[in-house]
Design a protein around this nucleic acid. Structure first.
Length: 753
DNA sequence: AGCACGCCGACT
DNA sequence: GTCGGCGTGCTC
């Protein structure tokens, strides 16, 4: 008799294991691992969806409950995907169903249906809807809006609004729904009156893009591709400076994969920042392309999912969530800008995309290609150690050398009586470039710079009520915001501590600098880009197109301007204060700073004119700045890897963060300490005394409270991550109710709070 | 998670 | 006596 091991779709540490179910005779032939099923669960036999993990034979079926039915009639996950779920469960401490749910789009509700025979059938209503649009019926197609709305009753306001939307070609149901709150009755009335009719909108993803010619390859591109073709390496790292032609290499690699009938996955750090790349891929291949990220609509996701699964779509572009696409026969995974920290997931499953992609490539026999102008230290180390084959593209494709950099010592400026944020050197350069009608990029990594609010009388800093952080003043809304819990409060007129009126508000870094720049260069137009000004989805793209059209002279911004955009007319890049990220208490501070400066420097001189870079700092001798100004990645790497070795930091070790949070400080602290003791005991059992030295004792988080939750953590810095993963899994499974705080395990986390 | 069981204090 | 608050333990 068949027994199915089923994972229940109940995301909890106690239910994160397979449960045995009896497979009824009528399902015996149908049932397979990877299928979604409906099962009764718990004391009340609640119907719940689950996923078949394994099928075994057995005789002790009397005690087992039976599977009520299947959901899809086919496996939604294949053996590879099941293996990945298990792999994520063990290596990143996610629940099995967290990973499984990442694979399958849409939510499920279980319905019952009673047959005449008395039998109850369980089925599923997927919330996935077809994409519905509305158009005018034949009779009304030619009529103009005024005439049409005269046909309606005068009080049918919603109906009129809907008609206007359809007139304006906002005919998709989804769009109408987003503009008009309760549109359903009005829509029904309009359909009943035979004025409009619904239709299934075809997807227009493969619409008319002009295919472009393939450019001729440079010598280095040719050489890399030849070696790539004949190599049987599993992983590759392309280290190429900005403008060296990496994208063309990626495109040819994809082409090679498609030629053998295999699919390609092309990952980018953030979809909204890479429209140029997406267009380039669209223009190259005469194929349908799926663009996947977390913000697409559910119906879009489901349609693309289906087309990828039945292999109609073979090219998948996306942010990190696209790694869970249902590709069947993958030839190559390309990860562009592999150093970006968006590749590390901060939610369950908390995986690292590069490691996961390596695992997936292995299962598919696909090639993994990483590319960056500033590879992460860990990746470059792996390349040096032979895990990835290293390709270098040290020259720009247009033959131009990297623009020269100047480091400006801001201490000298202070000595000379210049208290402004602009050095004489940078001011002169900006002035000259503007006179030449060239464009300037100024980069500020603000991170709390000049943005908190304090009392000049008593020094009191205004903090968030729910979090232990200073609030940030936003001039635009004239409010104070907490960047951690997103709450805001109106500005205080008096100091809440001493009642003084001398409360000092300064705008956020970029905001403040924008107004000062406007004073220095009254003739020029300044475009500011940061998370405050770029709130809406298309803001970033609109701003960047506007700047590339020359509608502004100076682009002032934070991290987001460092991403790969080409501006022909930009000849000067200024880094306003390089030290800001350098002094961050994180072992990757140097790495991040080097990457940021190098990436933003790459924006200069991409046109015909020679560019220049000016880096302002209070610490001009710092090795990061020296190497960055010389565009010397290898030099930086050599130095940095030595520091990592000395400090026993990644890539020589791995970090495991075990965090606890809850409303009561003492309870959280106690839980953290209890967990530490459990770790101690488990490790003692293993008989390896040295291992406990790799565990740092419980500590209070840097930000002690976020959203009214107190935070403690244990950090493990180890070169035996597998052993620790085993120990942690064991503890998490046995601790049941000993620990009541929220617990998070994050492997190699992005930030340590 | 979600639910039932059971132990204890408060209250008609 | 008994109602219900919440701590505890289990789900094939």
């Amino acid at each position: 008799m068949k027994i199915a091991q089923v994972y229940i779709n109940q995301l909890n540490i106690n239910t994160d294991r397979p449960f045995d179910y009896f497979v009824p005779e009528k399902l015996e032939n149908e049932i397979m691992p990877g299928m979604r099923v409906i099962v009764p669960f718990g004391i009340n036999n609640k119907k719940i969806d689950g996923l078949i993990y394994k099928i075994t034979e057995g005789n002790n079926t009397e005690k087992l409950k039976k599977i009520l039915g299947t959901i899809d009639g086919f496996p939604t996950l294949d053996w590879r995907q099941l293996e990945i779920c298990e792999w994520l469960q063990f290596n990143y401490h996610s629940f099995f169903m967290d990973a499984a749910n990442s694979y399958y789009p849409g939510t499920i509700s279980i319905k019952t249906r009673r047959h005449k025979s008395g039998e109850t059938e369980y089925y599923v209503n997927s919330k996935a809807k077809e994409d519905i649009s509305y158009r005018f019926t034949e009779k009304f197609q030619e009529m103009d809006f005024e005439k049409l709305s005269d046909l309606l009753k005068s009080n049918a306001i919603i109906q009129k609004r809907i008609l206007r939307l359809i007139f304006e070609k906002k005919q998709k149901h989804e769009w109408i729904k987003s503009e008009i709150n309760n549109c359903n009755t009005a829509l029904k009335a309009l359909i009943k009156a035979n004025i409009i009719e619904p239709y299934k909108s075809e997807n227009d993803r493969s619409s008319n893009f002009n295919l472009s010619e393939k450019p001729a390859l440079t010598i280095i591109q040719k050489k890399i591709l030849e070696e790539y073709e004949k190599s049987d390496h599993k992983g590759y790292l392309i280290h190429g400076v900005t403008g060296s032609g990496k994208t063309e290499v990626y495109l040819r690699m994809m082409e090679a994969s498609l030629k053998t009938g295999k699919s390609c996955l092309y990952l980018v750090p953030e979809i909204s920042l890479t429209p140029q790349t997406i267009n380039r891929i669209r223009e190259r291949f005469d194929e349908e392309i799926a663009v996947i990220h977390s913000k697409i609509t559910e119906s879009d996701r489901i349609r693309q999912y289906r087309d990828i699964e039945n292999r109609k779509i073979k090219i998948i572009i996306g942010a990190r969530s696209a790694i869970f696409s249902p590709f069947k026969n993958l030839g190559v995974i390309i990860i562009d800008e592999e150093h970006e920290n968006t590749y590390k997931s901060g939610n369950r499953p908390r995986f690292d995309t590069i490691t996961l992609a390596g695992k997936i490539a292995e299962l598919h026999g696909a090639k993994l290609v990483l590319g960056s102008a500033t590879p992460s230290i860990a990746t470059y180390y792996n390349a040096i150690m032979g895990k990835y084959k290293l390709f270098k593209m040290p020259d720009r494709i247009n033959g131009q050398s990297m623009p020269p950099s100047t480091i400006v010592d801001m201490r000298e400026e202070l000595k000379n009586g210049n208290r402004s944020f602009l050095s004489k050197r940078l001011y002169d350069s900006i002035k000259r470039r503007l006179e030449e009608k060239e464009q300037v990029i100024l980069f500020l990594n603000k991170r709390g710079y000049f943005s908190f609010v304090f009392c000049r009388e008593c020094g009191h800093v205004i903090k968030c009520n729910k979090c232990d952080v200073a609030m940030t003043y936003h001039g635009k809304s004239n409010k104070m915001e907490c960047h951690y819990c997103k709450s805001s409060k109106p500005v205080a007129e008096f100091c809440p501590n001493c009642n003084s009126k001398k409360i000092k508000y300064s705008g956020s870094g970029t905001e403040r600098i924008q107004s000062m720049l406007a004073k220095y260069f009254p003739e020029s137009k300044i475009l500011r880009m940061d998370t405050d000004t770029m709130r809406k989805k298309d803001d970033v793209q609109n701003a960047l197109t506007s700047f590339s059209k020359g509608e502004a002279d100076i682009l002032l911004g934070t991290q987001m301007i460092t991403k790969g955009f080409d501006f022909e007319n930009v000849t000067l890049v200024g880094v306003l204060l390089a030290d800001l990220t350098l002094n961050f208490p994180d072992f990757r501070a140097s790495e991040r700073t080097f990457q940021l400066i190098t990436q933003v420097s790459g924006r200069a001189g991409r046109g015909e004119r020679q560019g220049e870079i000016v880096i302002q700092t209070y610490d001009p001798e710092h090795y990061v700045l020296e190497f960055a100004s010389r565009h010397d990645y290898e030099g930086f790497y050599e130095k940095e890897i030595k520091y990592r070795k000395i400090g026993d930091y990644p890539p020589f070790t791995q970090l495991l963060y075990v965090g606890f949070s809850g409303n009561q400080r003492d309870a959280v602290k106690k839980d953290c300490e209890t967990y530490y003791k459990m770790l101690e005991e488990e490790i003692k059992d293993l008989g390896d005394q040295d291992m406990m030295n790799q565990v740092y004792p419980p500590a209070q988080s840097n930000i002690t409270r976020i959203n009214n939750k107190y935070r403690y953590y244990i950090l493990i810095k180890t070169n035996e991550i597998k052993t620790f993963n085993k120990v942690i899994s064991k503890i998490n499974r046995s601790r049941t109710n000993k620990i009541k705080s929220n617990m998070v395990v994050d492997v190699n986390p992005n930030i340590i709070y």
